[in-house]
Amino acid sequence: MTAPAAPTLSPMCLPRAGALTEALLGDGATPSTDAVASARRDLEHGLTDAAGRAGARPCLRVRAFDLVTAAGGGSSAATPFRWTTRTARRRVGLAALRACLSEPGMVPAEAVALVVADPAAPSGPGPAGPGSCSDWLCSLSPPARAAVQAESTAWATAVWTSLEWDRVQPAPVVGAPDRWWDWRGPVRVALQGRADVRVPGPGGAHLVVLDGYPSAASRQALCFGPLVDALRSNGAATPARVVAWWPECGKAWVQQVDGAGLRACAGQVVRVVRLALDATERAG
């Protein structure tokens, strides 16, 4: 399966925020409902085929991360999730960015300090509950919270300075909850779509902030969030493009969402599900 090409932003353009904002607001049509229906058929057919050989097992969750990991030859199951300064920085950072957008003059360091000081507040890093980021933060000692604050401030500042926010219209949605699409066949599969910033409406876009640096494997996952949106809405809420941005290396890729990209991504999802089911079979 060939991943779609994704043009990169020129490193010569300064300020970078201008170029990234242009990329996010660029022209382009969303894929047709026929293209979405075709991707859905491919996906459901592939999942049915893959699940036909599988015994009973709990729901399989698939994220963009899993597509990248599988394409790179790794296994995401090897590293169980735990809250750390690194895994919490996105939640805390997004809450801080929402505060910066709603309070003129506020900057990330101030906003992050407020979020970390009162994680259980409505403006905190998400709903409270066992295992949640806000419960974890509440349980930390002051120096541990300061460590989270430091890492989150660096992340939030990188995102805050990456865009010319006042140019992004309609108003962007920052850190909206992940979107899910469920497939209930012989095996239950749940796709978890994520975007850090969503520009809503027709011709909308996703900004996805990623760790590390891009590779060939990264291309496989760019259309994953749009695929989930397309499947959920039957194509009515599919974004026109995705901008993937790696602040640690300063690279950005722009991916126009089209039928071919959605079908390629659906193929990768089927591959990941096959790998997971094969691993379960070998272990069992």
Binding site: A109, A150, A154, T157, A158, G212, Y213, C249
Partner: peptide, 10 residues
């Protein structure tokens, strides 16, 4: 815009 622990990977 102070940040600590800012990581760069090239």
């Amino acid at each position: 815009l102070p940040r600590t622990g800012d990581r760069v990977i090239v």
